[in-house]
Simulated scan of single mutants.
Amino acid sequence: MNRNTDSGIELHQNTPDAGRRNLLKLTGAGAAAFGAASFLKTPNAKAQNMSQDWDKVFPKSEKVDHEKVTFKNRYGITLAGDLYLPKDRANDRLPAIVVSGPFGAVKEQSSGLYAQTMAERGFVTLAFDPSYTGESGGEPRNVASPDINTEDFMAGVDYLGLQASVDRERIGVIGICGWGGMALNAVAADKRVKAVVASTMYDMTRVMSKGYNDSVTLEQRTQALEQLSRQRWVDAEKGTPAYQPPYNELKGGEAQFLVDYHDYYMTPRGYHKRAVNSGNAWTITTPMSFMNMPILSYIKEISPRPVLLIHGEKAHSRYFSETAFEAAAEPKELVIIPGANHVDLYDRMDVIPFDKIAGFFNQHLAA
């Protein structure tokens, strides 16, 4: 694990020979923002060949039907998703929910678990891989964008609204971790969505531009952008982007939240070979657009539609939800889960308040 400086940023000289060893690190962006190491050699712009096997990190429910689907976003990128439908749906048009996250995860992990569980509770749900990741299309691989990834949620709403089993006037969104911030941003703009839940939410533009607890100074930010800008010449010269090194390989002495990420992404609990955070990596220049584009500027415009924020009491990221809650307009609710850390809300069925989430959507997606 590379060390963090007291300032929260560690800069390495960028030269053509330095290659993939050179990178920017912002405070705490580590496991949460950038995931883990290596790179995926899958440069196809179309959706990757989708596995038809049940390759999720959670067991398949006998209460729902499941199918693999694809759909396109506004930029023409083909997204891959898992569609979950209640078995007892008959010919009814049901309320539906688009789900994605965490940042650097795939639909076979937390978002799929949320989607399947909500389908058990009577909703048609769609868990998808964001652009450039997992089985979705886009090149180069493993790039994130506050704009395109916000659009990905809206494309999911497009898709669900065309399904015969869905009442398009009753669509909600769930975003997990870094995709919680994307979900809030998408719903602020997309007035078709009637309600939104952000679970263990990260504001990725805030953490990448300011570091954890907003500790990065203007001088440090300028230095970081200087390096990232020059990295673009390195990438342009080589014709391929450089990728970041491992974050989730523990060597001892790491902060507890990094240990928690490792426990989910790098062990049988949550490891998935296609996840950025499970032994793969974002491009070095991924932070650039996040550092100059605050995604929660218009959170008040979600109102009068309701917002439910859920966070763990012990989560290092709790302040993101608390700040978002303060900025949002009514109707809004913040639920703090006693004793829970950040990743407990990824998959702990005894911790995630599914009764609360289902009740929220039953109320606000009512016919």
Rank of each mutant, 00 (worst) to 15 (best):
A36W: 02
I336P: 09
F325S: 14
A358C: 09
W54S: 11
Y271I: 03
I9C: 09
P268G: 03
F103K: 05
I295H: 04
M349Q: 06
I284T: 15
G253W: 00
H12F: 11
T217K: 03
K273Y: 09
F325V: 13
L365G: 13
A366R: 04
I310V: 15
S7V: 04
V124K: 06
H12T: 13
D203T: 15
T285P: 10
K238H: 10
Q363F: 02
L23D: 13
L250Y: 02
S209D: 00
N49L: 09
T27I: 01
P353M: 05
H364M: 07
S199M: 15
I337N: 05
H262L: 05
P16H: 06
G112S: 08
P245F: 01
S111V: 11
S289H: 01
P140T: 10
V173R: 02
H342C: 11
M208C: 14
P16Y: 05
E226C: 08
V276K: 02
A198N: 10
H272C: 06
G104C: 00
S297W: 02
A80F: 02
Y264F: 15
Y132T: 12
A188P: 08
Q223V: 01
M266P: 01
Y319R: 11
G172I: 13
E135D: 12
G312P: 09
I337E: 09
I357Y: 01
A36H: 07
T70N: 07
Q163L: 15
I352P: 11
L162I: 07
S136C: 07
D167P: 10
I171Y: 07
G104F: 03
T78W: 04
R274V: 06
P306Y: 03
E219P: 03
Q13H: 11
L296R: 05
H342S: 12
T240N: 04
S110C: 12
F360M: 12
K56W: 03
M50F: 00
Y132W: 11
R168L: 08
P16L: 08
A236E: 03
G172H: 10
R3I: 08
T222C: 06
I176T: 06
G175T: 00
Y261D: 14
H342M: 09
A164Q: 13
Y114K: 08
V351H: 01
L113S: 06
A224R: 02
G137R: 04
T42L: 14
F320C: 13
V234E: 02
Y319S: 15
G253Y: 01
